[in-house]
Computed example of a mutant assay.
Amino acid sequence: MLGQLFTGGGDGRVLSIELPPGDVVWPDPGYSQFSLDHRPAFWLSDTVVSGDLWAGLRAEHGRSGLWPVLLEDSVQPWSAGQIAPDAVAEIDNYHAAAFMAEVWADWVQKADAGQLELLDPFGPGCPGPAPSGELAADPGAVADWYAGVIAERRTPLGLVAADRGADALAVMGWQGALNHNEWMVPLAAVVRSWEDRFGARLVGMGFNTLDLSVAAPPVTPEHALHVAAEHWTFCPDSVIYSAGTLIDYAEQIRGRNAWSFWWD
């Protein structure tokens, strides 16, 4: 069953962990933008899973090629197949810096003068991506810890044929940020960049939520403020509704080993 997730049937892939009952999820042809060779988008468990199972599957990712994702629940869009998978190759065409600059400029162009206070101290000038953080722990270990936290919500499991967690956003056809960005590929490019710069790992997602572990978070106020600017372009609702300004939001994420996003 899992072999259906791979082009060529997953020859040479190995998974030694016993899985709970589950089945593959096929995308709705009306939602898909790209042909995936008539393959299912991911595998979905029928039951909730533990953080330990997630950690074991993450450890086997190099051999299995399957990235585990804790899902908010088993209801739509997962079980209904209302998902729009994209070609992973498309992610290579996008870069975090370009996405950030485009979102920033577009918002500034439409904003009233009083709204620019939200972006203090940067104002209308996009600061670009923040410098890399310093690893405080192994990214895999931090991801395993966070999976234990997320699993307390009693979530089912998704398995995705992806070389890295960020790519699961495209492969699964997740549309959680639809009201912010209609195409998930640029967001996957941003998460790839966070994997490289902050040791981020995709752990969970919901209908309109995303949960990442972070092994190299910003620890100074200045660095956190720069990262906050990135988060605002990635998910404005997380900043506006949880903090109101970049300065206040920066204090919320400084030194934290988990980033959670929510789109209205």
Rank of each mutant, 00 (worst) to 15 (best):
E60N: 11
S16V: 13
E60W: 04
G56F: 09
H38Q: 13
S16E: 11
V75F: 05
L53N: 08
G51V: 04
F99W: 14
W54G: 06
A84H: 05
W26C: 04
V88M: 02
Q33K: 04
A59F: 00
Q76S: 14
A55G: 14
W78A: 04
P68Q: 04
D92G: 08
N93S: 13
S64F: 01
S32E: 08
A55W: 02
R58F: 10
F42K: 12
V69A: 12
F42S: 08
P85R: 06
R39P: 10
S50N: 03
P20V: 05
G65I: 04
S74Q: 08
A101M: 06
P40N: 11
P77G: 13
L15D: 09
S35D: 13
E60Y: 02
H61P: 00
D86V: 01
V14Y: 02
I17N: 04
I91R: 09
S79Q: 03
D28A: 12
A96P: 01
H61F: 01
H61T: 14
P29S: 09
V14S: 08
E90K: 12
S50M: 03
Q33P: 02
D73F: 00
S16N: 12
L36Y: 01
I91Y: 00
N93R: 14
V103Y: 06
V75K: 13
A101S: 15
S50A: 06
Q82D: 15
P40V: 13
V69C: 12
L57G: 06
G30R: 06
V24L: 14
P29L: 07
D23Q: 15
V75H: 09
R13K: 15
G65H: 05
H38Y: 10
W26Y: 13
L44A: 05
I91W: 00
W43T: 06
P68D: 05
A59R: 15
P68E: 04
H38A: 14
E72P: 05
P29T: 06
E60C: 06
F42H: 11
A101Y: 01
Q82K: 11
G62R: 12
A41H: 03
Q82W: 10
Q82R: 10
D28P: 14
L57I: 08
M100D: 10
S74W: 02
E18M: 01
D28W: 11
Q33I: 03
Y94L: 03
D46S: 12
V69Y: 00
V49S: 03
W26A: 11
Q33S: 09
S64H: 06
P27N: 07
Y94R: 11
P29Y: 07
L57F: 07
G56Q: 14
H61Y: 02
H38S: 13
V88I: 10
A101P: 02
R63Q: 15
F34A: 13
Y94D: 09
A101F: 03
L19H: 09
D23L: 07
F42N: 09
P21D: 15
P85Q: 09
E90N: 10
A84D: 07
I83E: 02
V75T: 13
R13Y: 11
F42R: 12
A101W: 00
G51I: 02
F42G: 07
D52E: 11
F99I: 10
Q82C: 08
L53T: 07
L57E: 07
E90P: 00
L70I: 08
I91H: 00
I17E: 09
V24Q: 10
N93Q: 09
L36C: 01
D46A: 12
P77A: 14
